Computed example of a mutant assay.
Amino acid sequence: MEKEQFLILIDKYVNGQATENEILLVEAYYSKLKGISEVGEQEIENEKYLKETLFKQIIEQIGTGSIDTATGIKRGRRISLWWLSAAALILVIFSIGIMLYKANKTTQAVAVDYAALIEPGGNKAVLTLANGKKVILDNVSSGAIAEQNGIQIKKKENGTLEYVQLAVTSSNNPLQNVFNTIETPRGGQYKIILDDGTTVWLNAASSLRYPLHFNGNERRVELTGEGYFEVAHLKTKPFIVVTGKQEVEVLGTHFNINAYPDEEDVKTTLLEGSVKVKSLQDKSQSKYLKPGEQSVLNNNNWLVKPVDAATQVDWKNGRFIFKDEELKSVMRKLARWYDIEVDYTQPVENLNFSGKISRSKTLKDVLRILTRTNDVTFKVKERRVTVMP
């Protein structure tokens, strides 16, 4: 009997078209399958053993005429092809039952705690060399990565990317000016030491484009996202950071720039030294900052205000520090660091948060802290967080 005939038999039984003997046959063998509910979990996992045992019992009953008389099937010793096929059919049903049992067991047992599975970000970045080659920095070992135009690019033991000048140059024979770009993904950060000794920390979802060697009378780089700079002092060669809306010019100082495309404001915070901030919309306009001051530039306004500088570079030091910060701003920072998407069931403009949280915590720990201090709850599925005020 072919597979199609097996299916026909079941179809006839379900639709009330089976003969009396066909009905008795199906019900007799089905009664054996009912025992699966009484079999222990360990035995069910041993599917091979159960199938062999059931088949043996079926053959013995058919061959010896020992079918239970309660079913009404006549005893006999002849094993017909039809009976053997029916036995095979029961085994097919049995196998399906096992699969359904296991599937149901898995569904019931797995209640995924997605928030606990989402780990914090780490040192991750992609370096694009002057020839277009891309190097995934978190996958390469420490040591030399490449040499370009007399500059060695190497990854230090602590993961820092460093540029070291190998060739001796003079003003008459300068190194060719070619560019590299380093990009951090969501959930990434990286530290880089440029050719002049300037150190840059890149936050998540950020990029820095820079020359291998700073020729000419200035040191110019391009930033998207957020970066903290400790600029090597060169009195005759200013260091300039260009973002989408502004230029920041310094000689040697420590400052932070937050210029994410999804943020309305571009914020420049000075920790040490002095900087000049120039708007690209009106280059005749510029502002000078003193330590502890922040420039806030958007499409409509530009102001300088005093701030707690430590809260602006908290990310570099492995912390989130929030001081009466809007919940949406908090969630944007979490989205970049934990690589998550955030939805809102209703407006949250009136919800603010203050507190300090380590960036090494899992997302579950962070959301638990936010829940304790705000009238808000969170639902996490895979990498999507729904905020429910």
Results as ranks from 00 to 15, higher is better:
residue 18 A to R: 08
residue 3 K to H: 15
residue 54 L to D: 05
residue 42 Q to S: 14
residue 46 N to K: 14
residue 43 E to I: 11
residue 62 I to E: 02
residue 23 I to W: 00
residue 55 F to H: 11
residue 19 T to N: 09
residue 7 L to D: 13
residue 58 I to L: 12
residue 47 E to C: 10
residue 54 L to P: 01
residue 10 I to K: 03
residue 9 L to K: 10
residue 46 N to A: 08
residue 48 K to V: 15
residue 59 I to P: 01
residue 22 E to H: 03
residue 60 E to P: 03
residue 60 E to N: 14
residue 35 G to E: 09
residue 36 I to M: 09
residue 63 G to R: 13
residue 2 E to A: 12
residue 3 K to S: 11
residue 7 L to Y: 09
residue 2 E to M: 05
residue 25 L to F: 06
residue 59 I to D: 03
residue 66 S to G: 03
residue 25 L to Y: 12
residue 59 I to Q: 09
residue 11 D to F: 00
residue 33 L to V: 06
residue 25 L to D: 00
residue 66 S to I: 01
residue 43 E to Q: 11
residue 25 L to S: 15
residue 6 F to K: 11
residue 35 G to W: 06
residue 44 I to D: 01
residue 55 F to Y: 11
residue 5 Q to T: 15
residue 6 F to V: 01
residue 22 E to W: 02
residue 26 V to P: 04
residue 64 T to D: 09
residue 55 F to I: 01
residue 20 E to D: 13
residue 15 N to R: 13
residue 30 Y to N: 06
residue 15 N to M: 05
residue 41 E to K: 15
residue 38 E to P: 03
residue 60 E to M: 06
residue 49 Y to D: 15
residue 3 K to I: 13
residue 28 A to P: 02
residue 8 I to E: 08
residue 6 F to G: 07
residue 17 Q to G: 03
residue 33 L to W: 07
residue 13 Y to S: 10
residue 40 G to L: 08
residue 43 E to S: 14
residue 59 I to H: 05
residue 39 V to F: 05
residue 17 Q to C: 00
residue 36 I to P: 00
residue 40 G to D: 08
residue 53 T to D: 12
residue 39 V to I: 04
residue 45 E to Q: 14
residue 50 L to E: 10
residue 30 Y to G: 04
residue 56 K to G: 12
residue 65 G to C: 02
residue 22 E to I: 05
residue 35 G to A: 01
residue 43 E to C: 03
residue 50 L to K: 07
residue 46 N to Y: 07
residue 16 G to D: 10
residue 57 Q to N: 15
residue 22 E to G: 05
residue 18 A to F: 06
residue 66 S to H: 06
residue 4 E to W: 11
residue 52 E to L: 07
residue 6 F to S: 11
residue 55 F to L: 15
residue 52 E to K: 09
residue 60 E to D: 15
residue 16 G to W: 00
residue 46 N to R: 13
residue 61 Q to E: 12
residue 11 D to Q: 15
residue 41 E to M: 08
residue 14 V to C: 01
residue 50 L to W: 07
residue 38 E to A: 04
residue 60 E to S: 13
residue 39 V to T: 10
residue 33 L to Q: 00
residue 44 I to T: 09
residue 40 G to F: 04
residue 23 I to N: 12
residue 60 E to G: 10
